[in-house]
Amino acid sequence: MFAWVGEDRMPSADARPIDNDGRKTGGGEPGGGLVVAVWATLKRDLTLLMRRRSEVLNPLVFFALVITLFPIGISPDPELLATIAPGLLWVAALLAALLSLDSLFRSDYEDGSLEQLLLTPQPLAMLGLAKVAVHWLLTGLPLALMAPVLGIMLALPAGSYLVLAFSLALGTASLSLIGAIGAALTVGLSRGGVLLSLLVLPLYIPVLIFGAGAVQAAIMGDGASAHLAILGALLALSLMLAPWAVAASLRISING
C-alpha cells in the first residue's frame, strides 16, 4: 500500500516536468517516511481487524470458556480455586493469545499485501512491529482487562487484581512479540496451526513463570514489583530482538 509510493517515484522522477515552484511532482520522500509507513500500517491493521469483530472477540470468549471449564472439571470449592487461580488465569490467557496468533499474518499473506510490505523501502522489522502492536492492542490488552472479572469468578484473593491485569498487559506484549516469530515462520505453510504452538509454547515459559509468579506474590503480600520488573525486562529484550527475527522469518516464508 505504500509500495507504490516508492515504485511510482522512480519513473516519474525523470519523466515529469518540473513544477512552477521548481520541485518535481511525485519526487522526493515524504517527510518522516518511516513514521508515516508505521502509522499507516497501524491504522490499516486496526481498521481491518475492527471490521472482522469475531476475530477479536474469539480469544476473549475462549478465555472465558476455558476459565469456566476448570471449576467444573476440578471443584467449585472457592478455597481450592483461589490457590490455583493465578496459574489458571495466566495459562488460559496465554492459550487465548496463542489461538489468535495464526491469523496475525495469514490474511495479509493470502491477499498478497505481505509481499507489498516486503517491497517497501522501509525496514520490514518496524512494519512487523506495527502489526504486532495491533495484535497486542486487540488481543493482549482486552485479555488483561477481562482477567480481573474472571478472577472474581475464581475467588482470586483481593489485592491481586491490579497486579493480575498489569502483569497480563506486560506479559502478553512479550507473548505477541515472541509469537509473531512463530507466526511469521509458519505463515507460508498450509497446516501451520499445530506447528505454531509447538514452536512458540516452549518460548512462552519464562513469561508464564514470572507472570503467574507476580500474581502469586501479590496474594502472599510480598509485593510483585520484582516480578513485574523482570516481565518488563523480558519485554524490552523481545522488543529489541523479535522484530528482526520476524522480518527474517517473513522473508523466508514469502520467498520460499
Partner: peptide, 15 residues
C-alpha cells in the same frame, strides 16, 4: 514442514 529444502533450512536456522 517446508516443501522447499532451502526455505526449511533457513527457517530452522532462525528458530
Amino acid at each position: 514442514a517446508f516443501s522447499s529444502r532451502d526455505s526449511g533450512s533457513r527457517a530452522a536456522s532462525v528458530l
